[in-house]
Design a protein around this nucleic acid. Structure first.
Lengths: 160, 160
DNA sequence: CCCATATATTTTAAGCTTGAAATAAATCCG
DNA sequence: CGGATTTATTTCAAGCTTAAAATATATGGG
């Protein structure tokens, strides 16, 4: 039986490559639009929005390393974004007691209110950009994409 | 009849938002993996690969502005990446005759050969990452995503 | 021809991003 | 306890990215 061979150069491989290019283009198109809106309407940026959004889901705050993991960006990156948000007064850094290495980052009251305003608009922008999908389609697509974003998902294949 | 109202706060809107977050996560996961492989195995980067890939599809070369449009990145961005590729000897910049403002960028023989080696591996990496989709699924997903990446796609709705 | 406007590209400043090195503190274990 | 190792975070250098300003050239209309 001739199944599941090298995954390179065959037709499935080409189709997956095309899928990746589409995904990338879609992502760039959406990001460009969101970035533009955040900038012109709120003087903010996508990375800052992402941090605020993550913190909004955790009222008790998140450690730097948790932020970094949730957002899938490097530690050093989070340091810089949080610095700017602190300067803006949107978040505060709180020492974690019991571990003097760690820092918990948390929305300020002001940051929380600010985020609520951003988020409301943001949802509308996204919904418009994805307006060609009805609820069912959106859910179905999201479910299919889930398997990619999962960590360790080589789908039963051996590690590489 | 109660159709197609504000697209905000309703269930479809939430589903689309989840879809966007999934798309973003999938994209980050794939990019992280590809970046890592390009770096460790070829000492290269994703932006450089993207430029080489675009040029490879156009043997006669592309103008800076065409590159910028195809890749969906800013003009100034392309300037920098091409600069580094020129330094690497992978591409050359050729004056366009008839228009002294414009520049055509083209793979060198060396760059072309280099790209062929990268591309072969790249296809394998992508195919592995998307291994959970068979050919048909990959094509179907790509087709559905197509509508997002299209320019001007507000789906019949008025401009915003 | 000359000026106004448009187009192609580069430059610039600021911010984002990474991977690696540096710090600092916590934990492990002999 | 005390040294080795691990963990949390920051710093750093390099590269990527954008938007806006600057440059240079082309084009269109008097």
């Amino acid at each position: 039986m001739t199944a599941e061979l090298p995954a390179k150069g065959n037709k499935a491989s080409k189709a997956r490559l095309r899928l990746w290019l589409r995904l990338l283009k879609a992502q760039r198109r959406v990001e460009a639009e969101l970035r533009e809106k955040l900038r012109t309407e709120f003087g903010s940026t996508l990375p800052r929005f992402d941090v605020l959004s993550a913190l909004n889901r955790s009222p008790e705050g998140l450690r730097m390393s948790e932020l970094s993991e949730v957002l899938m960006v490097s530690n050093g990156n989070v340091t810089g974004i949080v610095e700017r948000l602190v300067a803006d007064g949107a978040v505060i850094r709180i020492p974690v007691d019991g571990d003097r290495r760690a820092m918990r980052v948390r929305l300020t009251e002001q940051g929380s209110e600010y985020f609520r305003r951003l988020a409301a608009e943001h949802e509308g922008w996204v919904s418009d950009l994805f307006g060609m999908f009805d609820e069912g389609e959106a859910e179905q697509l999201a479910a299919r994409l889930h398997s990619i974003s999962d960590k360790r998902n080589t789908n039963g294949k051996a590690d590489r």
